[in-house]
């Protein structure tokens, strides 16, 4: 009897063997698929379905006809966009604001991490860290609210200080020349502390015996910071830099929406705020979707490039 059975098992074709294996697999593991399914459905419904909707960038979208039935018009929206000075300006502003944030904002968390690392009193260190991480968790609305309040022409603390120093009040938020400074500065104030976490973690991974031998060799703390800590976290710095460059099209546009006004559009209007105004406020969905697609494709290329490079870097930096 038993022999016969095992013969049957052996004689099964590979295909039906695979099938029985699948059946057994699902009998055993169906719960995993139940756990996975809702999220996959969510991704399809809320993130992949809109990708299908992206086709309106090439269509003359009409609300009544819907996405599928609106007529194709090819690249017309893109021609329109690139003839639009506002869009060109938005690209320029995006790159400038992002670039400035990177240039001035990138070193700050590194310096902060190095400084935190040199603090000896653990309580002081912990308290300081807790405080500087905090702004990251505060909403753009409130941060913007604080900025608006602090820079208000007659009551804000900044102008009060200027007055005290004998200068006239400046209505900062209506001055295009001030917008970028205020925006980038606020960004650094809000995120530098939180961004230092990555570097602190990297510093924590440095082999302690390096410092011990340096102490024995008579190195000062300043020297150890420059000669040991900084070189050891260089790979992390490099990778973070590459990732940041890859995300250069990403600006905190919630904050911009809060802070900008027509008077400052010349310097403050970025791609996402342009899309918001064209699409959601002026209901030019197809044109705005085209702008969005352009943005998304460039961003995708940049991010993938950055990722590839950072992987290479992290591999080579191991050696």
């Amino acid at each position: 009897m038993e022999n016969e059975q095992s013969y049957q098992v052996i004689n099964e074709s590979p295909r039906s063997k695979k099938l029985t294996w699948l059946i057994h697999h699902f009998q055993r593991e169906w719960r995993l698929y139940i756990m996975l399914a809702p999220t996959l459905i969510w991704f399809i419904l809320f993130l992949y379905k809109p990708m299908y909707g992206l086709q309106i960038a090439f269509k003359d979208y009409s609300v009544f006809k819907g996405i599928t039935d609106s007529p194709w018009i090819g690249l017309e929206h893109f021609y329109t966009l690139f003839e639009n000075d506002q869009f060109i300006r938005a690209i320029k502003n995006t790159v400038i604001i992002s670039g400035a944030s990177l240039l001035f904002g990138f070193p700050v968390p590194i310096i902060l991490a190095l400084m935190f690392n040199e603090i000896i009193n653990p309580k002081f260190k912990k308290t300081a860290q807790t405080i500087v991480y905090l702004p990251h968790f505060i909403s753009a609305v409130i941060i913007a609210g604080i900025v608006i309040t602090a820079f208000a022409p007659s009551t804000g603390v900044v102008n009060l200080l200027l007055n005290a120093l004998g200068y006239d009040s400046v209505y900062f938020l209506t001055k295009p020349e001030w917008f970028r400074t205020i925006f980038v500065g606020t960004g650094i104030w809000q995120e530098a502390g939180f961004n230092s976490i990555v570097f602190l973690a990297s510093i924590a991974g440095v082999n302690p015996s390096l410092y011990e031998s340096a102490v024995v060799d008579g190195a000062s703390r300043w020297q150890m910071m420059w000669k040991i800590t900084l070189p050891c976290i260089m790979p992390t710095i490099l990778i973070m830099l590459i990732i940041r460059i890859g995300n250069i099209l990403e600006v905190g546009f919630e904050m911009i929406i809060m802070l900008y006004q027509p008077a400052t559009y010349a310097t403050s209007d970025v791609i996402s705020t342009f899309i918001y105004r064209q699409g959601l406020q002026a209901a030019q969905y197809d044109l705005a979707a085209a702008a969005g697609l352009f943005n998304a494709v460039i961003a995708f290329v940049l991010v993938i490039a950055a990722n590839t490079i950072s992987k290479k870097v992290s591999r080579t930096s191991l050696w």
Binding site: H25, E29, L32, Y33, L36, T39, L40, F43, F46, L47, Y48, K49, P50, M51, G53, L54, I56, I67, S272, I275, Y276, G279, L280, Y285, A288, A289, G292, L293, N295, A296, A299, F300, V303, I304, N307
Partner: peptide, 29 residues
């Protein structure tokens, strides 16, 4: 590790970090 198609599900989810349809299609959806 026993999940079938694990690699593909992971890619499907990670892909949305690199590319997303953007504000307008999301809103219309």
């Amino acid at each position: 590790p026993q999940l079938l198609g694990r690699k593909y599900w992971n890619i499907m989810i990670a892909f949305t970090m690199w590319f997303n349809a953007g504000m307008i299609p999301f809103f219309l959806n």
